[in-house]
Simulated scan of single mutants.
Amino acid sequence: MVSILNDSTDAYFNLAAEEYLLRSFGQDVFMLWQNEPSVVIGKHQNVWAEINPAFIQERDIKVVRRFSGGGAVYHDLGNLNFTFIESSRNADFDKYTSLMVDLLAEVGVPAEADSRRGLTVQGLKISGSAQCIHRGKCMYHATLLYKTNLQMLASALQGDLSDSAEWGVERRAAYVHSVRSPVTNITHYLPSALQLQDFKNIIISFLLKNKIVEGEYQFSPYDLQAINQLKEEKYATTQWNFQATAPK
């Protein structure tokens, strides 16, 4: 498995990169990445049930629908995202959750896994995850609330279905609804101060030490062209992010 330290903070690009790596990339991969302020919703969600549109428009927060299911999450530069993609006919998603519990234990954070493969500390959520399987490959991706603006998170994730008509949204019978949980930041539980970049370095060192990853990969010009094309044709479009009622 190779590691990709993706330095883009463009949510449209990063979600397109995940789909490209899942569908078209030849190697197993771990990607560590961050987004500028964004709300990322699950593939089968009604965006209007998940977001506060007035708040989001006022603050120019991106809204992006991802390739996997699950609930809505808020990202900013105080949040880390990680993605594992592996070729597997028998996906074991719990192993990734356990791996992150062990990683956090190394920095003194006593995290526990919940029934939805999220992570909590003293009952407060610090990570949510989603998973999918596509043609013999599995993807597990999750957030890590390191030093996120929790007030912005709470305000952005307040749905209002009355705004859906403005965007020409067709109603359907059922959507996946987010499960709201009280949240906190990892920094509150660290025994000593640790900069975010240092925490990122610890993650990579941990994965190398445990032979989860064996080298670093940088996107090639071909990769970047394919990802940017997918971004422009899908992830940066109103149709996919706001109007899709049965995303493919």
Rank of each mutant, 00 (worst) to 15 (best):
108 G>F: 04
161 L>Y: 05
121 V>R: 03
103 L>F: 12
133 I>F: 13
121 V>H: 03
134 H>L: 11
97 T>P: 07
107 V>I: 12
154 A>G: 09
155 S>M: 14
155 S>H: 11
132 C>Q: 12
102 D>E: 15
161 L>K: 14
90 N>D: 15
106 E>H: 03
107 V>K: 02
97 T>I: 08
150 L>Q: 00
104 L>C: 04
124 L>G: 01
145 L>Y: 00
97 T>H: 05
139 M>G: 06
154 A>R: 09
129 S>A: 12
94 D>Y: 08
163 D>C: 14
163 D>H: 15
103 L>V: 02
159 G>M: 10
101 V>T: 10
149 N>E: 09
107 V>Q: 00
87 S>T: 15
140 Y>N: 08
133 I>H: 11
118 G>T: 05
98 S>P: 00
112 E>I: 12
102 D>L: 07
142 A>P: 01
129 S>L: 06
131 Q>E: 13
135 R>I: 14
114 D>I: 00
143 T>Q: 01
123 G>Q: 03
121 V>K: 01
141 H>P: 07
136 G>T: 12
92 D>I: 11
141 H>A: 09
109 V>H: 04
138 C>R: 14
161 L>D: 06
142 A>T: 00
98 S>M: 12
144 L>M: 14
94 D>W: 03
108 G>L: 02
88 S>P: 02
141 H>N: 09
127 S>W: 02
133 I>V: 15
120 T>Y: 07
88 S>V: 12
116 R>C: 11
153 L>N: 10
109 V>D: 07
99 L>I: 04
156 A>S: 13
97 T>G: 12
123 G>L: 05
132 C>R: 12
150 L>H: 00
89 R>S: 14
127 S>Y: 05
95 K>A: 04
125 K>G: 04
162 S>Q: 12
146 Y>D: 00
96 Y>H: 14
146 Y>H: 03
97 T>W: 07
156 A>G: 06
89 R>H: 11
164 S>D: 06
124 L>R: 11
125 K>R: 09
140 Y>R: 07
126 I>L: 04
91 A>D: 10
159 G>E: 07
132 C>T: 14
151 Q>N: 15
159 G>Y: 10
155 S>F: 01
95 K>S: 05
90 N>E: 15
112 E>C: 06
91 A>I: 10
137 K>T: 12
96 Y>G: 01
151 Q>L: 07
153 L>A: 13
124 L>Q: 10
112 E>S: 08
164 S>C: 10
128 G>K: 03
